[in-house]
Computed example of a mutant assay.
Amino acid sequence: MVQLNLVKVLLLSNERTGDVRYEIFSKEGENPDYPEKIIVYREGNIGEHGERG
């Protein structure tokens, strides 16, 4: 089984559009400059009272 290591997390924030989080993974023992997987999460306003989700 391939082991992935979290190499870097980038968080871009904007009050109007919400937050975007990038998690960058590389294979264990491989060069971290060549990612194996990138997961992107987006959080934004979902309610009229500023609820986030």
Rank of each mutant, 00 (worst) to 15 (best):
E15C: 10
E23K: 03
L11E: 15
N31H: 05
Y34A: 14
E23H: 07
S13L: 11
I39Q: 05
E43G: 12
N5C: 12
G29L: 06
P35H: 01
I39V: 11
L4H: 01
R16E: 13
E43Y: 15
N45F: 13
V7H: 13
G47F: 05
R21M: 11
D33K: 15
I38G: 01
N45K: 14
Y22T: 00
G18P: 04
V7M: 09
Y34L: 15
E43T: 14
N14A: 07
Y41F: 13
Y41P: 04
N5H: 11
K8P: 06
T17H: 08
V9N: 06
I24P: 03
Y41A: 10
G53I: 01
P35L: 02
Y22R: 06
L10S: 10
L10V: 12
Y34K: 15
K37C: 03
I39Y: 02
Q3C: 12
S26V: 00
V40K: 10
Y41H: 14
V40H: 02
R52G: 03
N45L: 13
H49T: 11
D19Y: 06
Y34R: 14
K37L: 09
D33H: 13
I46V: 15
R21N: 04
K8Y: 09
L6K: 08
M1F: 15
P35M: 00
H49D: 13
V7C: 11
E43F: 15
S26E: 00
E23Q: 08
L10E: 15
H49L: 11
L4S: 02
E28A: 15
L10M: 10
R21S: 07
